[in-house]
Amino acid sequence: MSPARNMAALGAGVLFGLGLAISQMVNPAKVLAFLDVGGNWDPSLALVMGGALAVTGVAFRLVLKRPRPMFGDAFAVPTRGDVDGRLVGGAIVFGVGWGLIGLCPGPAMASIAYGMAESVYFLGAMLAGMAAARILR
């Protein structure tokens, strides 16, 4: 693994974490207010996804026209196109957990910056859930 690839990953991670904090996606209360369409709805986080997609929608197209990534031999992009029960079932299960607490994996990681025990409970369980999914596959 080259230093360039590692530094690129670190830099992209920092930008991503900054984006999660600036957008307040890292705040579970904000996420739950977005998901609570029937309550006192806060549509802000739709603009987080909208802003992100405005960039990736154009940039991914340009980047994937290139023969290879700058620091690698090939793009590691999923090729499957089929929709199966695992995809739908997994999305349902994820949604229940997301709606229960208001944290998805990125914000859960970034929330460590706020130094709360609650993040640790959630993250420990999240890693256990990921390991369980791997074992049961």
Binding site: G97, W98, L127
Partner: peptide, 9 residues
């Protein structure tokens, strides 16, 4: 919540 998010994703 953590278990569901980890397993589901």
């Amino acid at each position: 919540g953590g278990l569901l998010v980890g397993f589901g994703t």
